[in-house]
Every structure is written in structure tokens, then in C-alpha cells.
Amino acid sequence: MKCSIVIPARNEGPSLQSLLPRLQALGIADEIIVVDDGSTDNTDVICAEFNARVIQHPYSHGNGAAIKTGARAAQGDIIVFMDGDGQHDPADIPRLLSTLESGMDMVVGARSGGSQASIGRGIANSIYNKLASYMTGHRIEDLTSGFRAVRGDKFREFLHLLPNGFSYPTTITMAFFRAGYSVGYIPIAASRRTGKSHIRPLRDGLRFLIIIFKVATLYSPLKIFVPASAGMFMIGIGYYLYTFVNYGRFTNMSALLLTTSVLIFLIGLISEQITQLMYKD
């Protein structure tokens, strides 16, 4: 089977200069595609020097958009996605492919605790992993890793779900589990990135919080809405018992809490039906 390597890059010239020859030395890839996401450095020149195929965005569309562009252009049956900032070691690619060939549909490079960019990012990723593991019923070791090997035809089934920003790994992992595809993990050690990160903690913090809820509703909304509904119902019953014992009556607040619990459940039920339609094919 043919193998394509797709690298989204935005001003990653220095790291690409050392990464591309290492990829070529492996002799695994039938093509190396660098999606230049509106770079203002010499990314295109460096790629041409090492005979990598370059697809240029006229301006930055986002990491996820670059991934989608690369996936559409890739001709290989297997696609390896990796970052262009020097964090991922090309020597790990044979292990990804070997695990994929054992019957997996996607294999993810799971970063060790010491490979996280910061303590805060490490804590956030741990929360994502636990939430996703709860939603899927499978242990998810690294929900946000951008280093992975996939079967191209299956990956392209979900291009319409992928966001243009930095959360594509989260979405595609949950989509594969929802569709019943096999997902595996191999441990990797990620290096410190070369250059400056494009993620801004303050701006992206809220966005990643929203991603948590998007992940939940993408996979199985009832797993979020049912506990929330049950919690609200128990609060309503508890408040009703309190007011009945102390005042001998059923209050408007009790009615509001119980009605809200029913509404939350119904919204979750509708969300579940919509999710089913997303995966009907």
C-alpha cells in the first residue's frame, strides 16, 4: 500500500529543514505533502529543496483546514499526519505503520507526561482523555495528539466534521470510535517545538473548554444530558421534600427544577437523534 505523509506548516521553515531529510532517509513515504498554511518565511523554498510537494494556502486557514487540504490531496492508502514544528520523531513512523497493519484503522502517537508543552496543557489533556474515555467506554491515552497514521478512505469519511482550528485530533478520534473503527496507541516522546507556538492560552482556553462539550455531544449526548437531568431532578425532589416538611407545600422553585430536568433530558434525546443522523452512512 502507498503511504503519504502530510505535514501542516505555518512558518516552520527551520524545523522543516531538519525534518524533511530525516523523512526521506526513512524511505517509507511514497509522497511527502507540506501544506503551507499562509507562511511568511521560506517554507516553500525549503520544501522545494527536499522535493516535498507543497500546497499553499494564500492566508492562514487553520491547522485543521491544512489537515483537510492534505487529506484530500494525498494519494496514499495510508496517511501519516505529523506536525512540522519538530515535536514528532520520524523514527516513530514505522511503529505507527506496524501497529496499523495489525488490524487498526487509526494509530495515534500517545505522548508521555514529560512530553507535554506545559503543566497547564498536561492537566487539560488529562481532562480531555478522561472525558473521552468515559464517553467511548475505551481508554483514550492521548486525545489531542497530532501524530497519527490512518487509513485514508476512512479518514476522508469525516472531513465534513473536522473544524478548521486546532481541535481536529479530538474530533477525528471520537468520530472513529463512534463509527466502530479500531483505534490504537503507541507511546512516543515528543520534543520541545522549534519556534513559537501558535496556541494562545488565554484565547484558546475557553475554546478548549467548548471542545470538551463538543466532544461529548459528538459521540453520545445522552451520556452528558442524562446525568445532568438526573442531578437536576434529585435537586428538585430534595427541595420539594424540604419545603413540604417545613412549610407543608409544593413551591414554584420545586416545579421549576423538576421541569428543567425533563427539558434537559428531552434536549439530550433530540441531540442523540441528530448524532445518529450524522453517522447514518
Rank of each mutant, 00 (worst) to 15 (best):
T194N: 12
G62R: 06
G165Y: 11
G122R: 09
G165D: 15
T136D: 01
I28D: 00
I211C: 12
T144I: 13
R139S: 11
T275R: 10
Y279I: 05
L241A: 03
A124C: 12
P14M: 10
Q75I: 07
L269I: 05
H138I: 02
R95V: 09
K223P: 06
L19G: 02
H61V: 13
A189T: 14
A124K: 14
Q56H: 08
H88F: 13
F208Y: 15
I93C: 01
Q116E: 14
S112M: 14
F176T: 02
H138Q: 10
D85G: 07
L162S: 06
T144Y: 12
A255K: 05
R95G: 09
V45Q: 15
L277K: 12
F250I: 00
G236T: 00
T43W: 01
D44F: 11
G268P: 03
G113M: 13
M1Y: 10
F265W: 09
H88E: 15
N125S: 13
A66R: 04
M1N: 07
R249G: 00
L269D: 12
M234K: 04
T217R: 12
D36W: 07
I93E: 02
V215G: 13
V150Q: 01
A228G: 07
V215Q: 15
G120E: 10
R22Y: 04
F250G: 02
C47L: 08
S220H: 15
S229W: 02
L20Q: 03
F176V: 05
R200S: 14
H138L: 02
G70D: 03
R192Y: 06
P163V: 03
S102N: 12
C3R: 06
T217D: 04
F225D: 08
V245C: 00
M106R: 11
D153V: 13
S261H: 01
P90C: 00
R72A: 07
I67D: 00
Y242A: 01
R10F: 01
G205H: 05
E101V: 10
F208N: 14
F158W: 09
H198I: 14
P14S: 07
G122L: 06
R53S: 11
V150N: 02
L257T: 00
L218Y: 08
F177K: 09
S39H: 09
Q87T: 12
A190H: 07
M82V: 04
F213I: 13
I267K: 05
N42W: 11
I264R: 02
I224Q: 07
N252L: 00
G76E: 01
A124S: 14
E141A: 12
I32V: 15
T173W: 09
R192G: 13
G248D: 00
A91S: 13
G13C: 14
Q273Y: 10
L161R: 11
S60R: 10
A189W: 12
H57Y: 11
F81G: 07
P58V: 00
M234D: 03
V35K: 03
E272A: 09
G114Y: 15
M104V: 02
A73G: 10
D204P: 03
L209T: 13
R72N: 11
D37N: 12
A175T: 10
D204T: 05
I55C: 06
Y128Q: 06
D89L: 07
V226Y: 09
Y219M: 05
G113P: 15
L266N: 07
D41M: 03
I210D: 12
G86P: 02
R203S: 14
A91K: 14
L257I: 01
S18Y: 13
V107G: 07
I270K: 10
Y128T: 08
A228H: 06
